[in-house]
Design a protein around this nucleic acid. Sequence first.
DNA 1: GTAACATACAACCAAATGGTTGTATGTGAG
DNA 2: CTCACATACAACCATTTGGTTGTATGTTAC
Lengths: 112, 112
Amino acid sequence: MVVCELSEEQTNKVFRALADATRRDIVRRTLRGEVSVSGLAAHYDMSFAAVQKHVAVLEAACLVTKIARGRERIVRGQPETLRQAQVLLTSLEDIWRQRISRLDDFLAETEN
Amino acid sequence: MVVCELSEEQTNKVFRALADATRRDIVRRTLRGEVSVSGLAAHYDMSFAAVQKHVAVLEAACLVTKIARGRERIVRGQPETLRQAQVLLTSLEDIWRQRISRLDDFLAETEN
DNA sequence: GTAACATACAACCAAATGGTTGTATGTGAG
DNA sequence: CTCACATACAACCATTTGGTTGTATGTTAC
């Protein structure tokens, strides 16, 4: 079990996990509805073990969780982690916006 | 020069680039104001060449651009690429939201 | 109970990543 | 002109990543 806070290291894992088309697709499917690992694996042209590893990467990043149900493991998407990633991107954009508004202030001052 | 569209491959590069604390810090600094590569390198406990490589990764992901000024290269943050990454995260969250609203509809129907 | 299914996990491999040092080239200051 | 600075880039190395196959274990169906 991994503690799911957005530390520097955890942030690395989240973005790293999203930097792969297969994993992004897995996230989509797990957000859409309930799926088992083998259910996911059926969609990709790679071994079951490979898909299992992708799910493990997403789980370590807290982008999905797994719960046992019978002999299957149900994989659930974790929208909260996506939201945290969005917050980080927004904070970066805000830095830029603040700069632009400082620039506007400067221009407003000098143009008078 | 890299064509900056958000293809699957380009998306990989953007998230991969953001999956490193040093690179995220570089993005912050380049959004805050103008900086040269050596100006950036001064802040990190690694060789100039290593920082150069980080900037190259960010440039390939279109998260920054470099322009020559005298003997320096000025590195600029590209907020547009950040916004595109945000759009992708939002689209993932929307998938989840749609599922929830379908679930609400279902409950509303059966509870009558 | 046994066969088939779902998962877990180790061992292995090629390629990519993230750092290093060394060398070459272009630019600016004096 | 020359020296110092800013950059570029190649070669090298250890570690991580993303895939494979093989084996073991737990669960369900019959």
